[in-house]
């Protein structure tokens, strides 16, 4: 797998927004690859740039944002594509499902219309064929009574059903890459597992790649092949799921793992990481986690650590604790 060319390669991606307070560096120079058939999870707290990363890849950010760096999907440089060409990739080769299934579908259009629409847009098929394909897709995502479903409106279905419909829409054109932005956050716990299993099964069946954005480490442990931990617009740690869970390096990753409830353990109080994600405006060069970190050293507040491997594995971390020679000033 390591010698293969990555399907999606994000390099030095920087997404900035101009706000009234100044330049917001929502995503600040991140790198990661996703290989064919692989599930990569991006983990982090709210406001650390996960969703912006996803929207940058999809090209769905408002014009007020600036994107630098490169996003390469299957040999095509997405940042350099014209709007029209990007549109042809979206929903086709690259598709996305969102956090809120209840609001993500158009309330005045039937489910059928909304599924056939994407097929008719990207494929050369007749309306009849599109409807037939829609019924197959509905069956594929595990909903019965397809004939009835395509005639219903979003408000007539439950959240779990709607998320399945969203998945059907996303998979309609056999994408190579699926981005799922917290697909289970808004759902019931029992439904969460069903939707995750569905995604996992479909991924294996179609051999597509998946970029899953979540803050739920339980989800990560279940589905991820590799994990990217983000903090304040930067990647702080990256590695395989085993490496992250058995040998977390960055104090932030360790904090996240400690904050995860473990079934059966009788702790009085769940661990929390003190403090909050810093405001992403006018950050000074430093480790952005420094003021919440129990291992904070002098250098942490003065220089930004780089993401690098400290042994021969692919496990990378951006933390001064692991620098072999700390540059003393």
């Amino acid at each position: 797998m390591t010698q293969q060319k990555p399907l999606l390669s994000v390099n030095h991606l920087k997404t900035y927004f101009q706000s009234d307070d100044g330049l917001v560096k929502a995503v600040d120079g991140i790198n990661f690859d996703v290989y064919q058939g692989e599930t990569v999870c991006i983990v982090g707290e709210s406001g650390c740039g996960k969703s912006v990363t996803a929207m940058s890849i999809m090209g769905l950010l408002p014009d007020s944002s600036t994107i630098q760096g490169s996003i390469n999907l299957d040999g095509e440089e997405l940042t350099k594509l014209s709007k029209g060409n990007m549109r042809r990739i979206r929903g086709n080769k690259l598709s996305m499902i969102f956090q809120e299934p209840m609001t993500s579908l158009n309330p005045v259009m039937t489910i059928g219309e909304q599924i056939t629409e994407v097929l008719l847009e990207h494929q050369v098929i007749s309306k009849k064929q599109a409807i037939k394909k829609s019924l197959e897709l509905i069956k594929l995502v595990g909903i019965g009574r397809g004939e009835q479903i395509i005639k219903s409106y979003p408000h007539q279905l439950s959240g779990g059903m709607l998320q399945r419909v969203m998945i059907a829409i996303a998979l309609a054109c056999d994408p190579k890459m699926l981005i799922a932005d917290e697909p289970t956050t808004a759902l019931d716990v029992t439904i969460q597992a069903q939707v995750l299993n569905l995604l996992q099964d479909l991924k294996e069946e179609t051999n597509m790649s998946m970029l899953l954005i979540t803050h739920d480490l339980g989800v990560v442990a279940e589905v991820a092949d590799r994990v990217v931990v983000m903090y304040a617009g930067k990647v702080v740690e990256q590695g395989t799921v085993e490496e992250i869970f058995t040998d977390p390096k960055h104090p932030y990753t360790r904090g996240l793992l400690q904050a995860k409830p473990v079934l059966g353990s009788r702790k009085k109080r769940l661990y929390t990481i003190p403090g909050q994600v810093p405001k992403l405006v006018d950050l000074k060069p430093s480790c952005y986690f420094a003021d919440r970190c129990e291992h904070c050293m002098e250098i942490c507040t003065q220089q930004t650590p780089e993401l690098k491997c400290n042994d021969n594995s692919e496990h990378k971390v951006a933390c001064w604790l692991y620098e072999k020679e700390v540059v003393h000033q």
């Binding site: 929903g91 969102f98 809120e100 609001t103 993500s104 579908l105 629409e117 994407v118 847009e121 969203m166």
Partner: peptide, 16 residues
Amino acid sequence: QDFVRTARAKGLKEKV
């Protein structure tokens, strides 16, 4: 609204 974002994510033309 979210569903407009979904419509864009489907790759529909801006006019649509």
